[in-house]
Amino acid sequence: MKIVVLVKYVPEPTATWKFAPDLTLDRGAVEGRLSELDEYAVEQAARLQEAGTASEVVFLTVGPAKAVDGLRKALAIGGDSAVHVTDAAMHGSDALATSLVLAKALEKTGFDLVLTGMASTDAEMSVVPSMVADRLGINQATFAGALSVEGGTVSIKRDSEGAVLEVSTALPAIVSITDTNPEARYPAFKAIMASKKKPVTTYSLADLGVDASSVGLAAAAVKVTSVTPTPARTAGTIVPDEGEGGAQLAEFLSSRGFV
């Protein structure tokens, strides 16, 4: 079984982000990293390979030149090789365009199972997995809190309101992995060194047969018209507890009508 894991290179969540004059996120101005939420999918793939369930694991990213650092991090955790789709025309792409390019790249790599994160940690849309599934005409089992693969069938556990669901589907399929799965291992020095020898193939849009005019800011069907900082909350009253903290809190809650 061949697994391809979709991984996104994102700005460091704790950094101060800036927006460029074209209202896209200024990715050059902030330190980047492999999305923390994609590490759960990388770890699952590594485990399936160690268990002998997966014969090959490939990491796939669409992103700027620096995104290769994210692929290297994934390769240090596991897997065999990586694919990096990078093209200046991708700047400002919306989710429709990103999913189109990912689907084209997946057609090129081939796969039995595609694993993804539950959301990116930058745009946090949680739509790319279903979009890619639809474009490839394959089954999906999204928001998997746990995953198992047996004889051409993938089964997941999914948290829903009031119940934990079990969902099964035949391969080929795409599965998004939540952060209730095991955290990614911390790669050993030896694994980091070995990962540097793993091959990374770079594709342009032309290599994938994608027309550059169908992606990028100009093609986006969603135009961002303004981005402003969230208004700060007015500073509150902070008191030390000198034995009266509970009573003071009750007084505050009562003044606001909650008690």
Binding site: R233, I238, D241, G246, A247, L249, A250
Partner: peptide
Amino acid sequence: DYGVIGDLHKVLPALIDEI
């Protein structure tokens, strides 16, 4: 909007009593 700096195991039981 309102904060108490203290041990929640002291502040919250007192709050519950007061409520």
